[in-house]
Amino acid sequence: MNDKKNTLNKQKLNKELKIQLLVFIVTLLLTVLAFVAVASEKFAPTFIAPFIVTLAVVQVIFQLYYFMHLKDKGNKEISIFLYGGLLIGVLTVIACLFIVWL
């Protein structure tokens, strides 16, 4: 029984390790992509800025969900507060930009 559980855990760990490595490589690639976008000097700044920001958002999601284990069970409260705070922050900025100043 215990042995079976151990092997199961081991399999799970192996899978987890593979995912972590994969995500790590992907984040490295995304970082390279961001550098290339700027260094190649072939793209207009109006393209580069939103492109890099999009990459950054993807990186943040990877960071939160894979490296900081937000995808695992038992993180419901953390997610609620994360997204609640995000919602309030974004709404405040939007309100300032588009209602108050523009």
Binding site: I88, L91, T92, A95, I99, V100
Partner: peptide, 9 residues
């Protein structure tokens, strides 16, 4: 609580 953040102005 939520609306409290949307009314500061």
């Amino acid at each position: 609580g939520f609306l409290g953040f949307m009314v500061w102005a």
